[in-house]
């Protein structure tokens, strides 16, 4: 009798063990599957255009000529704009919430900022196109055309049609979307610093500014950099919000007001309309480029955050 119960128990254990192990392995299989399907689907375009695919600026579905440079440029520049704005803004918000505001303010404000993260990206896209773009056109772009265009170097960025949508608008919408991530991660890092550190710094007569910039921020440097890179990774792959506001033109222009396109927005906008196989294959190779980009960026972020 005893031996049968034991046998059954051992059996249950090994079945359970195997089930849970295969589920864990599934994660690996899905990731490998994504990579293989992207290589397989993009092979036709990659073998036709070779390494030139990444560097060529020509994207012509009608003439069946495909180069990814303009989409890669759009992805990198819009994401760069996003982190240039979101890192200081997110860090400032985190400092306000963790160090400066009293609890009765920081709790509801913190929840509100987290609410920003729960809003789906398609809503940001709609809001960006119908609410932000008209405002941005009248409130900033006309002003910039009159006042900023003459400036050396940066003047050329603002020399374009004030139509509200374009590369800069996409970057701004992305910055709003990654702001909550950066805020949450850096706020949490600030809150892990023990209070004695603050007390010691204030005790020697430092102002809040000095305590935060010389004592607290250096000690969360890794977490802050990791949060920034994680935000960058989010921005690189974001699709719908960008598809609404970037304009959908496969060109590289100096002006940030010009319509452009990113890797993900090109795929989203052209995939279902692509009729020839080469076009579909070129879009999937774009996906492969995005996969490699995000994998590198996210890998670095996770290593930094772990330290």
């Amino acid at each position: 009798m005893l031996s049968t119960t034991n046998a059954r128990a051992v059996d249950g254990d090994s079945i359970f063990q195997r089930l849970s192990f295969s589920s864990a392995i599934l994660i690996l299989l899905v990731l490998i599957g994504i990579l293989i399907s992207l290589i397989d689907g993009g092979w036709q375009a990659l073998s036709e255009f070779g390494p030139g695919f990444v560097f060529s600026n020509e994207w012509d579905p009608v003439g069946s000529q495909f180069g990814a440079a303009s989409a890669i440029y759009g992805t990198l520049v819009s994401s760069l704009i996003a982190i240039v704005i979101a890192i200081p803004a997110g860090l400032g918000t985190a400092i306000f919430l963790a160090e400066l505001a009293p609890r009765w303010i920081s709790k509801p404000v913190g929840m509100a900022i987290e609410l920003l993260a729960a809003v789906p990206s398609i809503i940001y896209g709609m809001w960006g196109l119908f609410v932000f773009a008209p405002w941005f056109s009248e409130g900033f772009q006309f002003w910039a055309l009159e006042n900023l265009v003459g400036l050396p170097v940066i003047g050329a960025w603002f020399d374009g049609p004030p139509i509200g949508i374009g590369l800069l608008t996409a970057g701004l919408i992305l910055s709003f979307m990654i702001l909550p991530i950066i805020t949450a991660l850096t706020r949490d890092a600030l809150q892990t610093i023990p209070n004695v550190v603050r007390e010691a710094a204030y005790g020697v007569g430092a102002t809040p500014f000095e305590v935060i910039t010389r004592v607290l921020l250096p000690s969360i440097r890794n977490a802050a950099v990791g949060a920034g890179i994680l935000g960058l990774g989010r921005a690189l792959g974001e699709t719908m919000a960008v598809a609404f506001v970037i304009g959908g033109a496969n060109r590289i222009e100096t002006s940030l007001f010009m319509p452009a396109s990113s890797i993900s927005s090109t795929i989203a906008q052209q995939f279902n309309e692509a009729t020839n196989e080469m076009h579909i294959s070129a879009l999937i190779s774009l996906g492969l480029v995005l996969f490699v980009l995000t994998f590198l960026v996210m890998g670095v972020a996770r290593l930094l955050l772990k330290k």
Partner: peptide
């Protein structure tokens, strides 16, 4: 990595 993979790639 899977958590932060762009969702459009999962679609592809």
């Amino acid at each position: 990595m899977l958590m932060s993979a762009p969702s459009i790639l999962v679609g592809l």
